[in-house]
């Protein structure tokens, strides 16, 4: 099957990604790069014309790229960069950033401070290229800048914020899941007006969400990658509605003196969370919810299994050699 190259206006592709590929079929597939992942959108909507299919694909890709660019930490003149140019001064923030901060605030409260949108700077110490343990002194010097309570911001007056010098926001912990949900919402709204029947799945590197208006519904077959180097999926499940998100250190960890340190960092200690669990996949209503539950699960360390079990949502929790699930 030969893919069609989708031509997307330069203004909708600020990060200059290669053009997305559209594979037309009963279930058409759009494949593109975003947020350091291979992303795909699956669209099954028989009444859609070719131009509508291109239009809706373009809409979805543009939305994902917009979010990526807006909150990227590696761009000079985006929203994220502008937020961090004015330290120690009150500034006004846009509606979308307000909402993301509001969600991050709730997650911070609900997790008793374990999820913290200001913890990104710890990566300066725990970079993936590190071969020796950092000095505790270096961590101690950074810790005063970690903590949501450093931000001068309140949920009741979300339009205004003051970011003290040295404090940094990191939307990486929710950005990808947020993009999945946004793309799914935009596309399903479009399809609902153009096609009597549709099925839709948005998958950004394993974090995915799906929706359909078909009755009875036809489930999507979704796999969860194994921990092995092959990255082949060893768990297959059927998903008709909702989202699945995975958090773990299968790809991102450092090994020092034979000890493995994952990339899930405890904002209270500045150290990686040590636990027997390597990854967790969680099913939820939205990708943001599933992703946050997955992150919070691993942040519980040794208590991860008890925590996720008590939430009542479907999960697959993996240690090196074993998978625990309530399914």
């Amino acid at each position: 099957m030969t893919p069609i190259k989708l031509h997307i206006a330069a203004s909708a592709n600020p990060s200059c990604h290669p053009s997305p590929h559209l594979y037309k079929s009963d279930t058409s597939k759009v494949v593109f790069q975003c947020m350091a992942s291979t992303c795909e959108i699956l669209i099954d909507a028989p009444q859609l014309t070719h131009s509508q299919l291109t239009e809706v694909s373009t809409l979805g890709v543009a939305e994902a790229w917009r979010i990526e660019y807006k909150y990227s930490r590696y761009v000079i003149d985006n929203t994220w960069a502008n937020l961090h140019k004015q330290h120690d001064a009150e500034q006004l923030i846009d509606q979308e950033t307000q909402s993301l901060l509001g969600f991050a605030y709730q997650a911070w409260q609900l997790s008793d401070g374990l999820f913290d949108i200001t913890s990104g700077r710890l990566r300066e110490i725990w970079s993936l290229t590190r071969t020796r343990l950092p000095k505790q002194q270096d961590i101690d010097e950074l810790m005063p800048y970690i903590g949501f309570s450093n931000l001068k911001w309140l949920p009741d007056t979300p339009e205004s914020i003051l970011i003290p010098t040295g404090v940094e926001l990191d939307f990486g912990g929710i950005g990808k899941e947020y993009a999945v949900d946004r793309v799914l919402n935009i596309l399903s709204e479009y399809l609902a007006t153009k096609s009597l029947r549709y099925r839709l799945l948005v998958n950004f590197g394993g974090d995915l969400a799906c929706k359909q208006n078909q009755c009875p519904p036809t489930p999507w077959n979704v796999g969860i990658e194994s921990l092995s180097q092959s990255h082949r999926s060893d768990i297959d499940l059927e998903l008709t509605q909702g989202a699945l998100a995975t958090s773990g250190d299968t790809k991102r960890f450092i090994e020092i003196d034979g000890k493995r340190f994952g990339h899930i960092l405890n904002p209270k200690t500045g150290w990686p969370i040590r636990s027997p669990y390597r990854s967790v996949s969680v099913a939820g209503a939205t990708c943001v919810q599933a992703g946050m539950l997955a992150t919070l699960t691993l942040l519980q360390g040794n208590q991860a299994k008890e925590f996720i079990n008590q939430t009542g949502v479907p999960y697959w929790l993996r240690s090196e050699h074993k998978t625990y699930t309530n399914q």
Binding site: G102, F103, Q106, A107, L110, Y178, V288, L296, G312
Partner: peptide, 21 residues
Amino acid sequence: PKDIATLLATASCALTAGISS
């Protein structure tokens, strides 16, 4: 944990619908 899951679901729906949570 059960409350957390429920509250996160509500908050995430508000977030992605573009309404301040």
